[in-house]
Design a protein around this nucleic acid. Structure first.
Length: 659
RNA sequence: GGCGGGAUAGCUCAGUUGGCUAGAGCACACGGUUCAUACCCGUGGUGUCAAGGGUUCAAAUCCCUUUCCCGCUACCA
């Protein structure tokens, strides 16, 4: 017996901070369509997905909710799995990073890398220059000395573990250059090369001491393993990988040997860096082969910019499914997502696609074909051999469709692949027009021709429905059962005429996809929005509170060192070389200081003028983007990083001391 | 600021190494048809191919300049 070829693909594991919106769900559906397609092709497929459950954010959220982190992630992970199941994703393995075997292996991996010197203990903050009171990373130092004053720097602050990236950089660059498909789409490859690899990599800090909710470093109490080391490892721990080969058989031992290296890591474009740099380095350090391909897919966004819970305009997969059904949503996300640019999702667009492609083109085709078969032929369409030249066009298109679909899928052009399938259905509609069965039906002598025409249609639809299975599995089943037949085998896709003669179609064709009225859809969307807003009003309250990491206590004399005064902005202009910086002339008492601040996104230069703001006056001057800054304008920052200037509550003169 | 990618029909976009009157889908209009979920089929664009210049027998496609968008990245005292 010949071994089947294997295909291992993964999604990124979803972070368990909350319910996944349609954009997250897209990735799971995309992966599922690829997994199903590969299975259809005869591969032995393993499809892994799951949840990423550690980190400070979850620790904080669970505290707020008054439950343990584990309780919190159990709940959210369950929700995520529920949506993946709702979307009919056929994963073979749903891994959780709180699974015991995973945690144990991550500790072993960390230890091994430490013991062989790829991870070393260092200091998180970096190099400290006492006179300048500044930290620098080692790469910022000039000849090992402070880049500002040229004096000696000392390592300082928090102990932490680092992963040596430099050691493997050349190998990684070489690998990327010799494997053009390794990073897809190609433009992403350039970003990684130009921004990280070619300039040289700084060692990555791979441990934390500021929170507890993570996998502990088992040989150094207080340290928790960086969440990305933890998360990335899932791709091998989920296969039962064991560092020293002595796993307690929680997994089939053969899985890892069978499926690693992965054929495809499917991830969002935002986490490409972790997958194309840190993950390959980890694997090289573990002396394991690298995955064949990493695809950073674009995002599905909402029209009016960012989705926000507080606006109640987040579109969730289950809400779309409520209205349109699972396969309609699968179809939309797969069809609407381009290869390289972000896609857009709105209620209007979904309605339009469902009506036009699913209800009109596909649903109506199946319906009219079955109706005619019943009306004219008593439900049995057989090939009576009465062919005409026009038939060949249809047959050619149908029998060549699989090849085209396979080509698109090979290139991960899933949207294009699904379009190829629909070309069959469109051609069928045209064929009906060309052959006019309702006219043939009126003439008893044309009965054989009529039967052949309908047979050709049925065969074509069955072929199309079979090809549709990776994308819309339920619809495939529904169509095939209406024709009382089974899926056409992939090896027979180039053959025409396999529908068994004498098969009777269903008496009552079921409507596959209902047409939706856009007004009604929007009304329902509005109801959902209202619900979201009220359901999240508590969350909104929570969002107003921000917890930051506590800094060490300071003495009053520490505080006294800082001089705060009210400043009046008398002039302000943009720093031309920078996207974020504004340069203000600030009147403080009788003197004027020039201060540069990174607030261009939030304030225009004109509107700055005349404002009274709080200024830290005695900060050591520094150059930003080449412009001298002699102090700091104080701002409040929210969770999204938006800034607001801090002003005295009553009008105060410029120069007034703040104490 | 550095690197990269864009700018093509009302909308979303295709246009491979320069080469037949610049295309597809959606929307819209008209015509046809009635088996069907008011569906399907056909026909319809005067598009400055962002602007300007250059190379060429020939440029949406190559080169230069400009404007505007987007991505990654840096500066965020």
């Amino acid at each position: 017996m010949e071994e089947k070829k294997t295909f291992y693909l993964t999604t990124a594991i979803a972070y368990t901070s909350g319910k996944p919106h349609i954009g997250n769900t897209y990735e799971a559906v995309l992966a599922d369509s690829i997994a199903r397609f590969k299975r259809q092709q005869g591969y032995d497929v393993r499809f892994q997905t799951g949840t990423d459950e550690h980190g400070q954010k979850i620790e904080i959220k669970s505290e707020e909710a008054g439950i343990t982190p584990k309780q919190f992630v159990d709940d959210v992970s369950g929700q995520i799995k529920g949506i993946w199941d709702l979307m009919n994703t056929s994963y073979d393995k749903f891994i959780r990073t709180t699974d015991k075997y995973h945690e144990k292996q991550v500790q072993k991996i960390f230890k091994k890398l430490y013991e062989q010197g790829d991870i070393y203990k260092g200091f998180y903050e970096g190099m400290y220059c006492t006179p300048c009171e500044s930290f620098f990373t080692s790469s910022q130092l000039v000849d090992g000395k402070c880049p500002d004053c040229g004096r000696e720097c000392q390592p300082a602050k928090e102990e932490a573990y680092f992963l040596k990236l430099g050691k493997y950089t050349d190998r990684l660059i070489e690998h990327i250059n010799t494997h053009p498909d390794f990073i897809q789409p190609e433009s992403r490859k350039n970003e990684m090369m130009n921004n990280f690899l070619l300039p040289g990599l700084q060692d990555l800090c791979v441990s934390r001491t500021s929170f507890k909710w993570g996998i502990p470093v088992d040989f150094d109490e207080g340290h928790v393993i960086y969440v990305w080391i933890d998360a990335l490892s899932n791709y091998i721990t989920g296969l039962g990988y064991d560092v020293d080969g002595n796993n307690e058989l929680e997994y089939d031992k053969d899985l890892f040997a069978k499926f690693w290296p992965a054929n495809l890591h499917l991830i969002g474009k935002d986490i490409l860096r972790f997958h194309t740099i840190y993950w390959p380095v980890m694997l090289m350090a573990l002396n394991l082969p690298l995955p064949k391909q990493i695809f950073g897919h674009p995002w599905l966004l909402q029209n009016d910019g960012k989705m926000s819970k507080s606006k109640g305009n987040v579109i969730y997969a289950d809400e779309l499914v409520d209205i349109f059904g699972v396969d309609a949503v699968r179809y939309f996300v797969l069809h609407e997502m381009p290869f390289e640019n972000d896609g857009v999702v709105t209620w209007e667009l979904v309605t339009e696609r469902v009506n036009s492609d699913l209800a009109n083109t596909l649903g109506n085709l199946v319906n009219r074909t079955i109706s005619m078969t019943n009306k004219y032929l008593g439900g049995i369409a057989e090939d009576k051999g009465s062919t005409e030249p026009v038939d060949n066009e249809l047959k050619d298109l149908v029998t060549s469709a699989y090849k085209k679909v396979a080509g698109k899928m090979e290139a991960l052009r899933v949207a294009d692949a699904i379009t190829e399938v629909f070309a069959i259905f469109k051609r069928c509609n045209k064929y009906i027009d060309e052959t006019e069965p309702w006219i043939l039906g009126k003439d008893e002598s044309k009965k054989d021709r009529l039967s052949t025409v309908l047979y050709n249609l049925v065969e074509s639809i069955i072929t199309g429905a079979s090809l549709l299975e990776p994308f819309m599995p339920e619809t495939t089943c529904k169509i095939l059962s209406q024709f009382n037949t089974v899926k056409k085998d992939i090896n027979n896709m180039d053959k025409f005429g396999l529908y068994v003669p004498g098969t009777k179609v269903t008496d009552k064709p079921e409507i596959l996809f209902a047409r939706h009225d856009i007004k009604e859809v929007l009304e329902r969307a509005e109801e959902i929005n209202v619900k979201q807003v009220s359901a999240n009003s508590k969350d909104i309250e929570d969002e107003k509170v921000i917890d930051t990491k506590a800094k060490p206590e300071i003495t009053f004399s520490d505080f006294e060192k800082m001089q705060f005064q009210v400043g009046e902005i008398i002039a302000c202009e943009e720093v031309k070389k920078s996207k974020k910086l504004l340069c203000s002339q600030v009147k403080i008492g009788s003197q004027v200081k020039q201060i540069v601040s990174g607030i261009k996104q939030y304030y225009k230069a004109e509107e700055m003028v005349g404002k009274k703001v709080m200024v830290l006056v005695n900060l050591k001057p520094a150059k930003l983007a080449g412009v001298l800054s002699e102090g700091m304008l104080l701002c409040a920052e929210d969770a999204e990083g938006k800034l607001a200037l801090v002003s005295p509550e009553k009008d105060m003169p410029a120069g007034a001391e703040i104490c």
